[in-house]
Amino acid sequence: MSALWQVLVAIFWWVIHTLLEPIWNARWVALPPLTGVMMMAMIVGAVLVAPREIVEGEVQRLMYIHVPVATISYLAFFVTAVASAIFLIGRDMRWDAIARGAATVGIMLTAFALLTGAIWGKPTWGVYWSWDARLTATLVLFLIYSGYLLARAVGGPNDEQAARYAAVVGIIGYIDIPLIHFSVDWWRTLHPQRIIFAPKPALPGEMLLVLLLGFLGILFLTLWLITLRGTTEYLVQRADRVRARLDQLERA
């Protein structure tokens, strides 16, 4: 059983390594220009290509930012949850650094989703905020992962116990995401029903195209920021270890 488990773990790591290595090697060269190009294309498309929505007017163009940041924040928190799980299994602090990096990016994206949603809501619904199921669940997500970062900040960069507690929060917090996604189906909400991730997307082709550019732009931005932030956290851990070792040497 133990041998079978070891073989399965080895196969898992081989697959992960084979899939991710080329992407990882190209990260600093490919991600910044891809992000820039896609974001510029999204802005040009949102302003010049996408048609003006008849009922909501110009403010509806916020959709090209609001929907991608809200959706791709789920990916950032997914990275946090997966990296936290791998950390709990193997106790390798590098995964803790990746989880922290992804959580900060996810929190930033969730904040953008809440703010752009509030600005879009005012002319459309007449209010900036409503204690609607989807809005409230998104605010809860923001607070859960802010709590995760707070729990992680209590200890030092190499505090394994703080990392363990934070990892548990990072995994459990992800349960809120299906709740956000399906909230518009399960409850009567002010927030519109799903029109993009639905069996038949109820949007014209030009709008869908610009939205796709928005998704790609925010996706590349997120991957770039997660790698940048994750690497920074890893370097902080290494610097902390070197400092501790030097302190030890100087005392001796």
């Binding site: 009922v55 110009e58 403010v59 940041v69 953008f112 879009w120």
Partner: peptide, 15 residues
């Protein structure tokens, strides 16, 4: 409904 351009501008500016 008017164009609501100021809200569009505010949303993009916040981002």
């Amino acid at each position: 409904m008017d164009n609501n351009l100021e809200f569009l501008f505010a949303g993009f500016a916040v981002f």
